[in-house]
């Protein structure tokens, strides 16, 4: 497979790559006048309700694997994007958080995976509820560009982007909306 150059600043979703409208900053001040910002959880929780809901800019939140999502749950309606971090590919806590945020608490905004994502994990992420990925792994970027998701033809669990397979067991699913 030929290497496809892929700038690391771009965001991947089921439709392919697109430009990331968000900038990541430690504080709102640091973000300057950027119209869309992602702040760390602590900084985001420190914002006033008025700032969070301001109509002139979108403010998303970045959550590290060790941080609890509990304080976010009552505020989900006011969050445009939640970015869950994968500092190392083998730290799987954010999969369970995705499940809780999207499927148990019905978050309507964009759920994003950020960090060290292996190509073999992308299908898992989509199924637990992630919408987009911001990946720093070169092999993954290449494979995503080639639309090679390492997926399987059927799943043994319910999950996003799948539907019940007819004539088989209740826990099984096949890909497709």
């Amino acid at each position: 497979m030929s290497d496809i150059e892929q700038p690391a600043g771009e965001l991947w979703g089921r439709e392919g790559f697109r430009e990331d409208p968000y900038v990541t900053a430690e504080t709102l001040e640091e973000a300057g006048d950027a119209p869309a910002v992602i702040l760390p959880l602590g900084a985001w929780l420190g914002l006033t309700e008025e700032t969070r809901n301001a109509s002139n800019r979108k403010i998303g939140v970045l959550v590290a694997p060790g941080e609890s999502i509990e304080p976010l749950l009552p505020l989900l309606d006011s969050i445009p994007v939640i970015a869950l971090q994968f500092p190392a590919f083998n730290d799987g806590r954010s999969y369970s958080k995705a499940e809780l945020i999207k499927n148990q608490h019905h978050f309507k905004g964009e759920l994003r995976a950020v960090g060290d994502v292996l190509i073999d994990q992308v299908a898992y992420m989509l199924r637990t509820g992630f919408d987009t990925m911001k990946v720093n792994h070169a092999v993954t970027l290449n494979r995503l560009a080639g639309h090679n998701l390492h997926d399987v033809p059927g799943y043994y669990q319910p999950g996003r982007g799948s539907h019940t397979a007819s004539g088989t067991y209740s826990w099984r699913r096949v890909p497709g909306a």
Partner: peptide
């Protein structure tokens, strides 16, 4: 079956 390639529980 349920645990095979479980998307949430593979890491």
């Amino acid at each position: 079956q349920w645990s095979s390639m479980h998307p949430e529980f593979s890491y």
